[in-house]
């Protein structure tokens, strides 16, 4: 990954619910008949009602036996915000995806679209996917010392990065954002065109 240390603005994007139109885990869960449980747990976590780490480990555990290749397929089929993805690709060298989601599930999508990202780390134990290390989203800013940063996210676990980035944008295109995100964001968008136009002016 080459980045000009004296370069311009760094654009960071959450994956689930910002690039993808819906959260990823509930869709994977449908493969093993756990869509409702995972859906409820995911929603509660994004709303900030449940702490992220324990919830994420629990959900991964429930989905551990879904074959990784099948998940990669599901991810490529997920509806995304097309205009946003197009914008990101047009500014590819300035954009990074920041997701607590697992590398084995999300990297194939990133690679396919030629995008860089930070993810959580997984490992395989007896054919079951397990969480090895959950990404600390806030630590991402330390990778861009002295740079102006813009963060776009929609869930409670994006709040800290939205707060600490130079500019924080709450993505309310698909759903309202939780209060903790509204309290720290600089901007809020409800429309993809407005998001892209605003990013271009930052």
């Amino acid at each position: 990954m080459t980045s000009d240390p004296d370069g311009g603005t760094v654009f960071l994007f959450d994956f689930d619910g910002t690039i993808t139109a819906t959260e990823l885990l509930p869709v994977i869960a449908a493969e093993v008949g756990l869509a409702r449980e995972i859906g409820e747990l995911t929603a509660a976590t994004m709303a900030g009602e449940v702490l992220f780490d324990a919830s994420f480990r629990r959900r991964v555990d429930l989905l551990a036996e879904v074959p990784v290749a099948r998940v990669a397929e599901i991810v490529t089929e997920m509806p995304v915000l097309e205009q946003l993805v197009k914008w990101i690709k047009s500014r590819r060298s300035e954009c990074w995806i920041v997701t607590s989601n697992l590398d084995c599930w999300v990297r194939p999508w990133l690679d396919r679209h030629g995008l860089e990202g930070f993810t959580s780390r997984s490992n395989m134990r007896s054919g079951r996917v397990a969480v090895e290390h959950i990404l600390r989203k806030e630590s991402v800013l330390r990778r861009f010392p002295g740079r102006r940063t813009v963060m776009v996210g929609d869930g409670a676990n994006d709040a800290e990065l939205i707060s600490e980035a130079t500019v924080g944008i709450a993505n309310a295109i698909v759903h309202d954002v939780p209060p903790v995100v509204l309290e720290v964001a600089d901007y809020l968008v409800m429309d993809e065109g407005t998001l892209c136009r605003t990013l271009s002016r930052l």
């Binding site: 964001a185 600089d186 901007y187 809020l188 968008v189 409800m190 429309d191 407005t194 605003t198």
Partner: peptide, 12 residues
């Protein structure tokens, strides 16, 4: 605002 001009930019 969402109900009338969802394309408005909200600044906080």
């Amino acid at each position: 605002v969402r109900g009338i001009r969802p394309d408005a930019l909200i600044c906080l």
